[in-house]
Design a protein around this nucleic acid. Sequence first.
DNA 1: CCTTTTAAAGAATTATTATTCTTTAGCCTA
DNA 2: TAGGCTAAAGAATAATAATTCTTTAAAAGG
Lengths: 188, 188
Amino acid sequence: MPRAPMYDVDEVMEQAIDVFLEHGFHGTVMDEIIARTDFNRRGFYLEFGSKQAFLYRVIQFYIDTQLQRVIAALESDSGVQAIDDFFSRYLALIGGRGCLLINCVAELGFDDPTIRDMGRHYIDRLQIDFIACVEQAVNHHELRPETNIEAIALQLTSYVQGFAINAILAQDADELKLATQTLLRGNR
Amino acid sequence: MPRAPMYDVDEVMEQAIDVFLEHGFHGTVMDEIIARTDFNRRGFYLEFGSKQAFLYRVIQFYIDTQLQRVIAALESDSGVQAIDDFFSRYLALIGGRGCLLINCVAELGFDDPTIRDMGRHYIDRLQIDFIACVEQAVNHHELRPETNIEAIALQLTSYVQGFAINAILAQDADELKLATQTLLRGNR
DNA sequence: CCTTTTAAAGAATTATTATTCTTTAGCCTA
DNA sequence: TAGGCTAAAGAATAATAATTCTTTAAAAGG
């Protein structure tokens, strides 16, 4: 029997997310991936085949774990509270780092259909979940009955992308948090 | 007297904007810049020094001409009409292409302070101009007096970033336009 | 405790791409 | 129209970075 691999793929994914968030896809060099994830070059190519295939895996992992956990707030709970939860979790996720999926869409989206599709699915899901939440809120009399549900949901979906960009620009996490509070308060 | 250069720097800038929008900074190779702008390698390095210095010039040009023209809607006119104008011009600018500044912030912002500063100035200016517009709208009784001016302005600023991302993902310009109309209608 | 298998480490290679250099030829002036 | 200057074109070089290869050694089973 040969020795077992020392790296845990999930852990490597987590580490890779940080690296790609810092430098983007093309800005990240293999040397840094190797240095900052705990596995070796040969293992890398045996497991993933190429840097690009690796990126796809990392993004999918990011969606399935990080973003999934945030969106879950919208799907488990419901109404206004769910939306508050969502934004509070989302801010915690992207604060000081931005969103890997949105960054990759901005960097590669025009050229790369795979990434564009991932982005579209994510946005669609967000929109659908927001609609359900706002609908619930109306039903529970948390929002006025004449509320334009689709429009409000679309606003919320847009905020999310806006935050992802702001997270890169904001000096510190607090600034972003404050902005979010101001933004959501105004909507009541 | 030597022969005069054949290229017009402003024209080169316009052409370069398209290339960088398509492939991002690192994804754009010099060969394509040379092929699609009408000037030559030597001229390029004489004029700009490096690909990175060139990017800065192109972004600044993009801000000073394209984005400036759009933001002007907020500064010349005023009130709700100005905001409508702004979004209609902005959509025309980014439809099917996205926003060069936002893309560069997403790709390089974490690593590159110069670009981060450009992004911050842009967002700050947007926010200030929106505040002035919303204030005017309240004064002219286009919006209710209890309107939370800062919060509404922040919402609008966020939409702008959200649109920039959506423009990359939307199949066609119409989809984006429709979404925008829905979004703004809901806010009245 | 030796053999086999393959993981780890990192050196070597290859590919790509930014930058520089060389050649050619156009334009202006004298 | 000849000469000098420099723009255009693109070949050559240098730098960087992705991928592959080689060596070393750790673990499991006999």
